[in-house]
Every structure is written in C-alpha cells, then in structure tokens.
Computed example of a mutant assay.
Amino acid sequence: MLAELIRRDVDDIVDEWEQFARSSIPAAEDLSPEDLRDHARLLLLAVAADLETVQGEAEQHEKSRGELPDNSPQITATAHEHAQHRFEQRFTLDQMLSEVRALRASVLRRWVEQNDRYDPDAVAELIRYGEAMDQALTESVAFFGAKVDQSRGLLLGVLGHDIRTPLGAVRMSAQLLERTKGLDERQSKAVQRILSSSDSMRSMVDELLDFTQTSLGMRLPISRVPSDLGSVCAEVLAELEALHPERDISLACEGDLSGQWDAGRVGQMLSNLVSNAIQHGNELPVTVTARAGAGDVSIAVHNKGRPVRPQSLATLFEPLAQAKDMGGDRHSGSSGLGLGLYIARQIAVAHGGSLEVVSSEQDGTTFTARLRR
C-alpha cells in the first residue's frame, strides 16, 4: 500500500527532499534541519493517514473536484502552518510550490520502483494520493497568497501614512513662499505648480490609504451629520471648474436633498466621478444631476465621451484594474492605478447605497450613486 510505503520511507523521502531544497532554493540554505524538514514529514504522514481513511464513491467525486474542503483537516492545518512558516522565512510562492512538487515526485518514484503490477486498487490509491497532495498544494497557495496580500496592504498603509508628514511640509513651505512679496511671474508660477502638485499627491495618498483599509476587509468609516447634498455638489464642482476652466460642467438639483451624510466623503466620491468624466469626456460637457427620492438621493454624472466597452464593465470598479480602453489621457492628479472609481463605490456602499454605470454610443456614459438619507 502507498500509505505503508510513505510511513516506512518517510525519513528517506524527507532526506532526499531536504537535499533538493538546499541545492535549489536559496531561502532554504540557512535554515536549520528542523525548520526545513518538520512540515514535510508532517505533511507526508497526514497524507498517509488520509489514504487509510475509508472514502465512498460520492466523497471521492466531490474531493476530486475540490468540493469537499473539510475532508482531511490534518492536511489543511499542516498546509496552512507550512505556508505561514515559509512566508516568514522569505520563501517566494514559486519556491514553496517547488517543495510540494519535489515531495510528490519522490513518493511516486519510489512507488513505481516497488510495484511491478498496477491493479485497479493500486491505481485508485495513486489517484487518492494525487488528490491529497493537490489539496495540500491548494491550501498552501491560498494561505500564502492571503499573507502576501495582507502584508502588501499593511506596507501600502504605512507608506501612505508616513508620506503625509513630508508632503504637509512641502505644502506649508509653498504657501509661505506664496505670501512672500517680490516674486516675479516665473517664480509665482513655480510656487503654484508646487501647491497644485502637492494637492494631487495628497489626493493620491488619501486614495491609497482608503484602498488599503478596504482591501483588508474593513468598510470606509463615515461620520453622518445633517447636510444638504445640493450644497456639497455645488462646492465640489466649483473647485473642479477652477481646475478645469476650459470644461463645461453643469449641476441640476431636484427636490429635497437634505439628510444625514458624510459630506467630505460624498464630496470625494463626486470629485472622483466628475474627474473621471472629464478625463474620458472628449472635451464635451459634463452634467451632474442630484435628485431626491423617498428614502435616498441619487447623484448622476454624465458625459458623452467614448462609451465603456461591455467586456470592461465587469472590472470597472475593481482596484488596480481600471479598463485601459476607455479613451482619453490621464487627468491631472490621477494616480493611474484605477482607484478613483473603486473608492467612489466604497463610499456609496458605506452610506448604505450603491454606484452603477450605464454606457452606450448613443447616450454616453452615466454613473449613478444612490445614497440612503
């Protein structure tokens, strides 16, 4: 039996596997034998125990399709622990995968060398072995990937937070220079460029921090206070018109737009949507309509630029995956990371609402946010 072979030869298999790891994986060179070997041994023994467990035809079918995640908790636990250790020991994902492949190959080679006939029971056992190793591989990859995503998010969060201090110093220094008398026209324009660029950088940092927070599974924090969304929209559009004096941006308000909102967040959402419309609007007018509903308020941002392709709609609100085929050059202040629409939707969701888009050649593109009062 394959399980008996694994138990009998486990030390030799792990010896062979350790030689492979030390010769092929740089991160393994300085590890102690215990750090390198323990999980390989535990994983093999867990697989052997799984092979000895009675498994019905239905269970085998579900397991082969990955539909029986709790069929072998010992394999899952060992795979998670192994992935955690390899992550802490600075292995790459490819290096961790190569370990499991090497273990699988070593066992199969020994099995082939010690079998001169392959009856149905032996083949079935071999299939079960492959399924058990696949389960270990899948669990390790999923756990390792989650750890990588979490560490990346924390790194971005710390980086974004720490950038705020020197960025604030740059802006304060530029404001001081702006109030200095005697600047000529060229110097005044240079100071204005510093102020404008620092504002753009601050916006990017804020988006980065918001993305980091939501990517770690948290909802954007909001602080609701009595506000009028008509006034909020007017203030945001006034700022954008000052930044884009050549663009035609109009606002229409319908009905009672009062309610409990986080005005700053709603303003951020609208700024992202209108900036996106300016970027992709082919210099055509941008219209904003705020309309009162029974229990909510809708804010629609419309432009007549090139429509969004149907295949791009599915990823339009995904972070770091904004469609590249929407047309237009990147607007001033854009990070180019595709976070604006993602954060806009997160703000709508945090208000108990939604953000949707419709786009066609005939009617143009309209983003509509619905926010509960």
Rank of each mutant, 00 (worst) to 15 (best):
H39L: 10
L337H: 11
I249R: 09
H82R: 14
L45T: 02
D262C: 10
A169C: 13
Q260I: 03
A290K: 02
R86E: 06
E125K: 01
S360C: 02
Q150R: 10
E139C: 12
F211H: 11
T180I: 04
Q346R: 12
E88F: 11
D228F: 06
L337S: 02
R186W: 04
Q260L: 04
T289D: 11
W261I: 04
V358T: 13
L42S: 15
D325P: 03
E356T: 13
Q192T: 10
L177S: 04
D38M: 14
S173D: 12
S203M: 07
R110W: 06
V54Q: 03
G230K: 05
L237D: 07
L93G: 11
A28Q: 04
S198C: 02
S24L: 00
S72R: 04
R65P: 00
L177M: 04
A369N: 10
S334Y: 02
S203H: 13
G56E: 03
L155D: 13
S231M: 05
M326R: 05
S32Y: 05
R101D: 05
I25S: 02
Q95R: 10
A21H: 04
I13Q: 01
S360R: 00
A79F: 13
G340F: 00
E235R: 07
H61M: 08
E18V: 15
A132Y: 00
D50C: 08
H161I: 12
E235P: 00
L240G: 04
A27V: 06
D228P: 08
P245W: 12
Q114R: 14
Q175N: 10
T287A: 05
Q192H: 10
S32L: 05
D30R: 15
G264K: 15
V10E: 00
T315V: 14
E361P: 03
L108W: 03
A79C: 12
P319D: 14
V107W: 09
L316N: 00
A49I: 01
T365S: 00
G364C: 06
I6T: 04
S140P: 06
G157D: 14
A46S: 14
E52L: 05
D11M: 04
Y342H: 15
L167E: 08
H280S: 09
G168I: 08
F20M: 01
S188Y: 08
R370Y: 07
A83D: 05
S24K: 14
L68W: 08
P285A: 03
L68M: 09
L313I: 09
G293K: 11
A294I: 06
R152Y: 12
E361Q: 01
R22F: 13
V349M: 09
A314M: 02
S24N: 03
V274D: 06
A242E: 15
E178C: 00
A142Q: 08
R65Y: 06
T289S: 05
T214R: 11
V14R: 01
G56V: 11
V14Y: 00
R372D: 02
R101F: 00
E361T: 02
G352P: 06
S298H: 05
N303P: 05
N303W: 03
G255F: 12
D38F: 10
A49Q: 07
T76A: 14
G338H: 01
Q135C: 11
R41W: 09
H80M: 14
R186N: 15
T78M: 07
S106K: 07
R345I: 15
A77S: 14
L337N: 04
G182F: 07
S140V: 13
